[in-house]
Design a binder for these strands. Structure first.
Lengths: 187, 187
DNA sequence: ACTATAACTAACCATTCGTTTAGTTATTTA
DNA sequence: TAAATAACTAAACGAATGGTTAGTTATAGT
């Protein structure tokens, strides 16, 4: 009936994601998004509803980005060694594509931890729960540890992963490598 | 010459600190500060210059608050066991006095990691450097580890402490205890 | 080619931000 | 007690925020 969009929503949401990743939600303004995405506010609002809608779509894109790492993690069968590989892969993905730092999900988790945004908080909690479950499964492979120990170690790894994502924003590659190696020394 | 202040700067900056601690710098508005501190914007500006001045003063107050923990940490001589005690004490201080979460210094470190605020970034870096140095000293007590191992372990502890502060905002006491216990198992 | 309509531009909301300032009140000191 | 002045109140500042809308342009299907 009328003219088509000049932009691809997939392309512009990828750019928005990078900006949110770098600056967090609150510190990314619509003006910055307009500039980075190369489209007008009107287009953003007609495509994504509002700022939060765009952010949720960015989170979805991010999860797609790290999906391959998770898939590899799920499908392998080397127990603890897989978790370690997963840690290294998680850090690696934060180093590509420019200046973005840490894990977008973890950053969001921290930024919204005191807020009361139900939609976003639910997404964060489910992400963490799923990750913990995966750790438990991997820790159970080829192991005769009892459940209590496995749960304790899963908690340990969850917090380690969380802290690693936080630290990867401010620490050097060497420090991070030292941390990962030490983390897995006694599991 | 003229009338005296109705408020104590020490008292109101303590209240400001609690608010910054709970919400971070950007998410704490002057309006919120007025309400929490119980004084007018004018009084805030005349006492502390501007928002950043008030924040720096809050940081100073916070450092005073955790000063006793650091002092105890410095003066004891049980090596690694002291570091563990320090970790537990650091977590404990985050649980008192209401809903404030995590470590104000670490929260600030994270919030400003991408900004270019020289004054604040310098304070954060020096705090971390000092802490690392302390870890190195404690790890060297009654130990025949070579320097490389000690440095690696210091990096490990620094990131663990950083991650712990981040995690203490969102995780349970049990998860945190598990994490600390596991952390020191590896040393 | 015409028209309906979606995509676009750009100006403009109301609100909130950190900060300032004009005007008033209280109290210290001479 | 009276003058000087710091502490106070409250309103307003410009800039920036997320969000909207009136008006224009391009293109789809008839």
């Amino acid at each position: 009936m009328a003219r088509n969009k000049k932009y691809s929503e997939t392309v512009v949401v990828e750019k928005a994601m990078r900006l949110f990743w770098r600056n967090g939600y609150a510190n990314t303004s619509m003006q910055m998004l307009e500039k980075e995405m190369g489209i007008n506010k009107f287009s953003i609002y007609s495509s994504f509803g509002n700022k939060q809608g765009l952010f949720l779509e960015s989170l979805k894109t991010y999860k797609g980005k790290i999906g391959s790492i998770f898939k590899e993690f799920k499908n392998s069968n080397n127990g603890i060694e897989d978790i370690k590989t997963f840690f290294y892969n998680s850090v690696k993905i934060c180093r590509v594509d420019g200046n973005e730092k840490g894990c977008l999900v973890t950053n969001t988790y921290n930024e919204f931890s005191e807020k009361e945004d139900e939609i976003i908080n639910e997404q964060m909690t489910s992400f963490m729960t799923d990750l913990k479950q995966l750790f438990i499964e991997k820790l159970s492979i080829n192991s005769n540890k009892d459940e209590e120990v496995i749960l304790k170690q899963a908690n340990y790894l969850l917090l380690a992963k969380h802290g690693l994502a936080a630290a990867s924003r401010v620490n050097t590659e060497k420090e991070i490598e030292d941390y990962i190696e030490m983390t897995f020394k006694n599991l």
